[in-house]
Amino acid sequence: MTRYRHRAGELLVHADDSAAIHAELAGFGYHPDGGAGPLCRFTGTRPVPEVLAALRGRAASPNHLFGLDRIIWAEPGLRPKPTTSELAPLPESDADPTVGVIDTGILLYQGEPHSYLGHRVVYDQEDTVRPERDEDGNPIGTAAHGTFVAGVVLKQVPPKVRVRMKGVVDKSDGAAEDLAVANAIDELREEGITLINLSFSGATWEDEPPKAIEAALRRLPADAVVVASAGNRSSRRRVYPAAIMLEDTPGRPRDSHARVIAVGAADPTKDPARPRVADFSNYGPWVSVYADGVDVLGPYFRPGYPTQPAGALPQYNGFAAWSGTSFSAAIVTGRIAARMAEDVSARAAADLVVRLPEAGREDSPVVQLWDVNGAQRVPYVQGRLIEPGVG
Rank of each mutant, 00 (worst) to 15 (best):
T45L: 04
E75R: 07
A310F: 15
S326D: 08
D186N: 10
I193M: 00
G118W: 11
I71G: 01
V354K: 05
L352C: 14
G77V: 14
T83C: 03
E132M: 14
S172W: 07
V169P: 00
D279F: 15
G29R: 02
G202D: 00
G37K: 12
E24W: 01
A175N: 04
M165G: 02
F42W: 09
S364P: 07
G167M: 01
V122L: 13
R58S: 10
D178P: 01
H6L: 09
L195C: 00
L55D: 08
A350G: 00
N317M: 07
G146D: 02
T104M: 01
P158T: 08
G35A: 06
L188W: 06
M245N: 12
A359P: 07
W286G: 11
I140W: 02
D96A: 14
H119W: 07
L52Y: 01
R218I: 08
V378G: 06
H119G: 11
P379M: 13
R237L: 08
R276H: 05
P221A: 08
A242T: 00
V227W: 12
I21C: 02
R355E: 12
A329Y: 05
D292F: 14
R56T: 06
I71R: 07
L297A: 04
R58L: 10
V296T: 14
L87A: 01
T45F: 03
L188D: 02
D343C: 10
L195R: 01
T2H: 14
R259A: 11
H114E: 08
T147Q: 02
D343F: 05
Q376S: 15
G141H: 10
R56M: 04
L385F: 15
A15H: 15
P82Q: 04
D136I: 12
I71Y: 02
Y109P: 01
P209Q: 03
L107Q: 06
A20I: 03
L68N: 00
Y290D: 10
D267Y: 04
A212R: 13
N232Y: 06
V122M: 14
P306Q: 09
P250G: 15
R218T: 06
E208Q: 11
A349T: 02
Q110S: 13
G304S: 03
A312N: 05
A60L: 04
P303C: 04
D271M: 09
A143H: 08
R238Y: 10
S201Y: 00
H257L: 12
A329L: 06
R41G: 00
D295H: 07
D267T: 07
A228C: 14
E208I: 01
T307F: 03
V101C: 02
V277M: 13
P113V: 04
G44N: 04
R339M: 13
P314G: 15
A359E: 11
E50G: 05
N232G: 09
L195N: 00
E362I: 03
Y300W: 12
V122R: 15
V260T: 13
S323W: 05
D16H: 11
A184L: 04
D363Q: 12
A54G: 13
